[in-house]
Nucleic acid binder design. Structure first.
Lengths: 344, 344
DNA sequence: AAGGAAAATGGTAGCGCTGTCATGATAGCG
DNA sequence: CGCTATCATGACAGCGCTACCATTTTCCTT
């Protein structure tokens, strides 16, 4: 009978991936030197770096980032948590973040809360488990557990979209001011009976903040500030439906201030189809400055929010912070711009 | 002088995060039992599970997923690589993926290639380093290195968007057929001088495939199939501009078949502004079935592509595969639907 | 009550990499 | 020419967790 092979293979390796040690061996250096050749190229001699890189190429080595992250407790992952992917606003922020972060070798871990703060908390917990280098989240509102967790985390946290007292870094705009800005524009234009239309303001609470600004301006002028809140997402469809509801509930309405451009454009297109003149019969204003608004006739009056810039700026500040630079600002106001179109 | 403390602290721990061992100690069990209580709850008794969970809660333990992944060489990360985030089509696929995968406890690692296959290769390399459970990428075209890498990877790979012979799994639709479908519709409507308008077809090669289908139909009818290719992204703006170019270069054009709804809607809105009748003066067709098309007047004739479904289905197939079920199909055709509007 | 299967728990040894410190090689200086 | 400062490299151990196997406990069965 044949002797069994000694139980030499205690290894638990389940994949036959090339490891750094093999690369090192091929290059005739120690593993740690190979590691340095890849991660701190300035700390090894030119010749070793060359031969390590050559071995990497030849063997098709793909670094195991998980092992590296565990050993160094740094991961070059950045968690990005948004409340929705349907709303293109968040996607544009992600895009701005992405292009800046990827260029610096960071990867984005994407999470979607669907406007649920408990879900956000769960996602944050999970992401912390990934030892993310930083975390970006949309908005300043979190549930208590989440807030505590983040506040004690010890890595950079970037809260985007709105401006205010955040946990750490903050890039956003002043939504109350934006609401005031548009309301003032409408009042200046001579409209008096103005309805604000939003969708699920408990979710899209930034739209609620804009309403607060709107209301403050109207009250100051002694005007009513009726609110119509749709219980749907803020889509073209909802905008179209809201128009009918406004006309029914507030027949004398002269202008509608919509919480976003989708709603506004939906209403505008619906008005057109119904033969209503905009702004003759009814004026319409939106928020965001989506391209669509500039292509419909009449062009939509709206407030331009620099969404990609917001993402880019947030990413830049994070990178600055992560690279240890002390020169960064905790808060950035990305300003909005009133874009007067033909619809008011 | 006082004796130095023995060099007890050889620990490299840089964070003071609670570890599983501490949880185990608090619960009076061994670390491995605590691990099981969290990851294989059915393999421990009710009482131990309870006390472990209680300790987790009390200590605020957040599992270190990196360590867990290294030990188990499984990561519950799924890489998703798309060519663009500007194009809402990909975002909707991501959304479908996201909602299904997150519900199963997977996280999405998002990558954006900007239509650059070399960039895709780089992203794939990085993502493989994260020991992703699976990888989703948009499209069947990759550079050679990328293709080789993926083909040898050994984990599920899902190629979405278009239908064809993929590396592994594939969920998509037949773009050539979609092009034929719309072309046939236009021809059936009696249009003969039809221009196809696309944007950067080398990037958006699926639009190129639709053009191939389009051309085949027209040629079969003995008609010319002129192509106007814009060197911009396929946006509303580009659509508006392309209209002028079509009218200039092909003044007798009766219908325009646009590569997507954004272009088509841009052209339609521009036509409107210029007082052109659609479809009286010129017919317009798009592709995708974006909501916008159904809100403009005339409603846009388009082809509905089930984008979120595509993402959801892709995610479901992946999950099925990942959970070891052998009952899955390598290829899924998510069918498109011709949506006849008022613009043709 | 004895025997055996199944369930519950624990010990050990890594997963692949990098931080830390130690060592050897090279250069710089008066 | 000796002595220190710098650079290049390596040995070792450990990041926090889980696979694997061994052991103990529990629960049936006849």
């Amino acid at each position: 009978m044949s002797k069994d092979l000694p139980a030499a293979n205690k290894s638990r390796r389940r994949s036959d991936q090339i490891t750094l040690s093999q690369v090192a061996q091929a290059a005739g250096v120690s593993p740690i030197t190979a590691s340095r050749a890849l991660n701190h190229p300035d700390k090894v001699s030119n010749s070793t770096r060359q031969s390590v890189l050559e071995s990497v190429e030849r063997l098709g080595y793909v670094p195991n980032l998980i092992a590296g992250s565990l050993a160094s407790s740094r991961s070059r992952l950045i968690a990005v948590i948004v409340p929705s992917l349907i709303n293109s606003v968040f996607v544009e922020v992600i895009k701005g973040l992405q292009e800046t972060l990827e260029a610096q070798g960071y990867q984005i871990l994407l999470g979607n809360t669907d406007y649920d703060l408990d879900r956000e908390y769960q996602l944050v917990r999970t992401f912390l488990g990934w030892s993310c280098s930083a975390l970006v989240t949309a908005g300043l509102r979190h549930n208590d557990a989440c807030h505590t967790l983040l506040a004690n985390w010890g890595h950079p946290i970037m809260e985007v979209m709105e401006l205010g007292n955040g946990i750490d870094l903050n890039v956003g705009l002043d939504h109350v001011a934006a609401g005031r800005c548009m309301a003032s524009h409408l009042v200046d234009r001579g409209y008096q009976r103005i309805v604000y239309v939003g969708a699920r303001l408990s979710h899209d609470y930034r739209a609620g903040m804009r309403y607060e600004g709107h209301k403050a301006v109207l009250k100051a002028k002694g005007l009513e500030a009726p609110l119509l809140e749709m219980d749907t997402l803020g889509t073209l469809q909802a905008g179209a439906e809201s128009l009918a509801q406004v006309l029914q509930h507030y027949p004398a309405t002269q202008a509608i201030h919509f919480a976003n451009d989708d709603l506004a454009a939906g209403a505008l297109l619906a008005a057109q189809r119904q033969g209503l003149q905009v702004p003759g019969d009814i004026a319409i204003a939106g928020f965001n400055g989506l391209p669509l608004g500039q292509h419909i006739t009449p062009k939509l009056t709206t407030i331009l929010s620099p969404r990609e810039d917001m993402g880019r700026l947030a990413a830049q500040e994070l990178i600055r912070r992560l690279s240890g630079k002390s020169v960064y600002r905790r808060q950035h106001d990305v300003n909005f711009t009133l874009q007067v179109g033909e619809s008011t």
